[in-house]
Design a protein around this nucleic acid. Structure first.
Length: 484
RNA sequence: GGCGCUAUCGUCUAGGGGUUAGGACGUGAGAUUCUCAAUCUCAAAACACGGGUUCGAUUCCCGUUAGCGCUACCA
């Protein structure tokens, strides 16, 4: 009867990274699959590390991925009174107590223990303080944090939707801090209070919180509240099996966007990192995933982020992209590369789309259009040295390309077929292999060793540009030959 | 160190008491060919180790090892 409510709760201490994005995605899919509500919450209780501008960046990345939220974003920084209220409730019922120990003395105690290879946890000395001790310390102006009182014996267990039964002895837990001495709530207080108030039914988050869960369950119990279901997700690792971090290169969602990755490709790739759809289908849209998503398909072991597979998936999506959408994406690329010519936006839109259609089957990412395919959108391009070395070796090429330019200038109508007929006739006449002319022309027309079929390139570029570029290359070759 | 979790090709994974251990990415070979990609065909590639349980374990149990996580007045 209870509607399903889930949340994604990033903290604005960095950009949205791929691990967070996957957590958001699974929450989103779970909500959509069950017709539930997906809530976005910003956990910005760490005033020192939280940066407001990162909130905007995170929201943008979510939108870009297509993960729209139904409620929020809620900000923890705006709910401080509520946390203090809950803290007070816990203190009143004896589940929490003030701690006057300074962070400095605690740090020293911890270090001493570590040096002696002793396990250490807070010794609860402040729990033993009498009312009068507390009153005295307060009168002295000693600041205090509020600690949760973990039950002495026994253990707390729960049934994780992914990992199964998890149990932790209370002796392993220390009396953790709920409220810092400056009155700011800690993560544990924030999450529990929010998940409670927001009526979250399923907490789906990274497995790094697995060991935190018993603490939170203890808090739910202390508050007499209903405990939500938990589902922890295996972590995403770098190629060295270490937790993904900056030194692995791009980890932020935005960085992949900048590299020319399509959001649907990234989403699909991330979905498969730790989840297997029925039938093991690889390419799925958000809608298809929604239809079959289930926590049962989630894996228990960490997954390595494989850039190669992402690149492959991106090319699959790029090839399937409807032309108008691809065209507008390429337009943005060209604009930011300073290659956009406004004329294309109106009269020559069709011409523009023809070029994109020609390039589309080979594109691996959006950047290809402004990099290796630059010659299709600008007359200013360089001859790739590797390409020239590979296909411009033959000294006869200067004359051959010049002849080709001359011949092609007379072809009418000029199209794929007529251009091919013309080139092959010339090759035969000169007694050279067509490939020599073809590959030589490829470098002349595109500057690259790799490009679509040369006759399609010619037809797409048009007669004037084709002739001009062949002529230019012939002169370039002749000049360089002269220099020996 | 303590506690927790995990363990199938290089990577993502399917499977599960008896299978030629399946798929995808990547890799290699071939076909095609004007380059490259795509496409098609083929190939190499895995049950971490040791004990049990069992007629039979990759699968179930225990241990070892390894990896990861937690062990903060970070989240």
């Amino acid at each position: 009867m209870n509607p399903i409510r889930v949340r994604f709760a990033p903290s604005p201490t960095g950009y949205l990274h791929v691990g967070g994005a996957r957590t958001a995605l699974y929450n989103w899919l779970f909500a959509r699959h069950h017709g539930g509500v997906f809530i976005l919450r910003i956990e910005d209780t760490d005033a020192d590390r939280s940066r407001p501008e990162l909130v905007t960046a995170i929201l943008e990345s979510m939108e870009w991925l297509g993960l729209h939220w139904d409620e929020g974003p809620y900000f923890q920084s705006r709910r401080l009174d509520r946390y203090r209220e809950i803290a007070a409730q816990l203190e009143k019922s004896g589940w929490a107590y003030p701690c006057f120990c300074s962070t400095e003395e605690l740090r020293q105690a911890r270090e001493r223990a570590a040096a002696e290879h002793r396990a250490w946890k807070y010794d609860r000395r402040c729990l033993r303080l009498s009312e009068s001790d507390r009153a005295r310390l307060r009168a002295e102006g000693r600041p205090s944090a509020l600690r949760f009182r973990v039950p002495e014996g026994g253990s707390t267990a729960f049934e994780d939707q992914v990992f199964g039964r998890i149990e932790l002895a209370h002796s392993e837990l220390e009396d953790f801090v709920l409220l810092r001495s400056d009155g700011q709530p800690t993560y544990h207080l924030g999450v529990v209070a929010d998940d409670l108030d927001m009526k979250i039914t399923h907490v789906i988050r990274g497995a790094d919180h697995l060991s935190n869960t018993p603490k939170q369950i203890l808090m739910y119990q202390a508050l007499g509240a209903e405990i939500p279901a938990f589902a922890h997700l295996p972590l995403i690792l770098g190629p060295d099996r270490q937790r993904l971090s900056k030194r692995h290169g791009a980890t932020a969602v935005g960085a992949y966007r900048e590299q020319g990755i399509l959001p649907e490709a990234l989403v699909n790739f991330l979905a498969l990192l730790g989840w297997t759809p029925p039938e093991q289908k690889e390419l799925l849209s958000l809608d298809e995933m929604t239809a079959v998503f289930s926590l049962e398909g989630v894996s228990k072991s960490n997954a390595v982020f494989d850039l190669e597979k992402l690149a492959w998936m991106n090319s699959e999506y790029l090839r399937r992209l409807p032309l108008p959408r691809l065209a507008s994406l390429v337009q943005s690329e060209l604009e930011s590369a300073g290659l956009w010519q406004t004329a294309w936006s109106v009269a020559e839109r069709e011409e523009f789309e023809k070029r994109i259609a020609l390039l589309q089957p080979r594109a691996r990412n959006l950047k290809d259009f402004t990099a290796s395919s630059r010659a299709f959108f600008s007359d200013e391009f360089e001859y790739d040295p590797g390409a020239a070395k590979k296909f411009w070796k033959d000294p006869a090429l200067a004359d051959l390309l010049q002849a080709l330019a001359t011949r092609l200038a007379e072809v009418s109508p000029f199209n794929t077929e007529s251009a091919e007929k013309c080139l092959r006739a010339l090759a035969e006449e000169k007694g050279v292999k067509a490939g020599l002319l073809i590959n030589g022309a490829r470098v002349a027309l595109t500057g690259q060793a790799v490009a679509p079929g040369i006759f399609d390139v010619m037809a797409t570029l048009g007669e004037a540009a084709t002739v001009e570029r062949l002529d230019r290359a012939a002169k370039h070759l002749a000049a360089n030959r002269g220099l020996g």
